[in-house]
Nucleic acid binder design. Sequence first.
DNA 1: ACACAAAATGTAAACGTTTACATTAATTAT
DNA 2: ATAATTAATGTAAACGTTTACATTTTGTGT
Lengths: 333, 333
Amino acid sequence: MASIKDIAKITGLSLATVSRVFNNSPSVSPKTRSKVLDAAKQLDYHPNQMAAALRSGKSKIIGVIVPEVNNYFFSSIINGIEKKLTDLGYRIIIAQSHESAENEQKALQSFLNLNVDGILMSISKKTTDYALFEKIISDQLPIVFFDRIPKLAEINSVTLDDYKGAYIATEHLIEGGCKHLIHVAGDSKVSIFKKRKKGFLDALAKHKHPVNTYTVSELSSNPKKDLELINTLFQLHPTIDGIFVHGDESSLYLMNLLQSLKISIPKQLKLIGFGNANYSELVQPPLSSIDQRCDEMGAIAATILLKHLTKKQTMPQKEILSPKLIIRQSSAN
Amino acid sequence: MASIKDIAKITGLSLATVSRVFNNSPSVSPKTRSKVLDAAKQLDYHPNQMAAALRSGKSKIIGVIVPEVNNYFFSSIINGIEKKLTDLGYRIIIAQSHESAENEQKALQSFLNLNVDGILMSISKKTTDYALFEKIISDQLPIVFFDRIPKLAEINSVTLDDYKGAYIATEHLIEGGCKHLIHVAGDSKVSIFKKRKKGFLDALAKHKHPVNTYTVSELSSNPKKDLELINTLFQLHPTIDGIFVHGDESSLYLMNLLQSLKISIPKQLKLIGFGNANYSELVQPPLSSIDQRCDEMGAIAATILLKHLTKKQTMPQKEILSPKLIIRQSSAN
DNA sequence: ACACAAAATGTAAACGTTTACATTAATTAT
DNA sequence: ATAATTAATGTAAACGTTTACATTTTGTGT
């Protein structure tokens, strides 16, 4: 492997000047610059980024931690991040927490050992110890959290406004003429699902819709039980004409249950999900949903990180994205 | 940041012994070992992996290139890779080619500049220049290709037996009683789609099914045109009772077209896709498909790489995975 | 022609490790 | 007790850059 030394030898220049050429230093004459570049080409020289990183303290590597990479939401975010950072010469190194706080800590520590220039992450469901985050922040290593963020005051974060998403989804159903709405909720221990439920209920309240004991329910993911549940629900309350579901996968599942009960969508009942999964527009009927703007979330997180990397910003930034209503046939008039 | 030097100073030992402790060298007495570890804890020492990498030539970083990370198939592969490598102290750095040969080359080169210990990749559709691959191989840098592999003799590769997948999908339809089969093919410039087509045709031949001009067709992804195409196809050949589609997304698309023509699945016509996408079991009717075993593909690619990294193997290894038939309602009897 | 500033290049140390080789300490065999 | 062997530690160079500082070269104005 050719090094800067070899180029120096060939050209008769010093290491410093050669180095300066590759760092686009202005104080190098065009003549020597081209001499160096010629020699570089001739030797098939490529800079050793490790060495540069060691000496300069800038690795041009960004660490990314997500719960699971194998998930449309997170992989889309990674896509957004990668696109943004690659153009600027950064590389991203990826770790999965698999929802384990231990994996997360280990990944984070190994990122530090690798001298990453910055960190982008979504914390695991089990993370309770924020000590390392605080250390990173106080060490001035830029870190931006997205989607799942720790409850800390001074952090960079990018999140989706789940409350608002639920609210506009519900209003959409109401505006479409639904008089009798219910919500199929997600695990109430998870904060985003709590927010979605609240958004739904607040929208009902705003439009003076009544709230009953059955207005919010959770499915069990046991098809037999769930079918039973839905069946009795509709037998007792046949006027239900709109459902807001906490996620798209559950929406599909529910759609199938409803279809087997011969309830027609959207004629008899309108349905809207949350997440705008990759398959939502492919199913029959195409599912209305709330888009989480994953690509943008990644891009924005990366942008905030970049601003800190380049010292253009030092104050923490809290970005809350507005979800987008995607209307498809399942909630059409 | 504490360094080995600080520990040496505190303990009164030399750099070498301290270094040896962290590299688990056997020739260091238990007494000094614990002395060093104590000091390390006290100073909150963490080894600088960049420095170690520079000196030793081993970065413990593996480069991974995929066309798109934002894709269930590839993100599952990445998941398999990450799981396997993380346990052994490796970190993975990810780049997307976005199907551009230029991006791919750049990523590859930056991996080399970063001194990655090995490379795992699936080549872009546009890759035609294999020179860099050959250089990498002749430089003895371990590289394993998965799914989309270059046509080179001596390479490590993990692929799915697309031919076989198509063959068993087709036989499954035949065994289910289909008499009049057609295939909706993918872009014939892509080798996996060619193989799937061949598997289909060979299965037909094996079972003495006739092949007509319309037996294989391609969709345009223009819904109007495609609906027209399918419509006339079925008007001319109403006895068509089975379709093997080159992919699951196209299968869903086709399913929707068929439904709008009031063709019922699986009663009137059986359908099977390829890929076993995350949504395939969620749609109505649940779609039969060929599972590509993505997680395993990643894990196996990583395993082969590891064998080369540890010098336990030097001969290139070609692994061809058998696809798995997943029968669901769309092809049920 | 000269002084002086600006531009271009050079010198050498530093980044934090690893490691070949040398040395010293501890153990064993005689 | 001594030599021989083994175990433990130390010395110093190296990995390939960057960069503060020093020096030389070039250009400008008089």
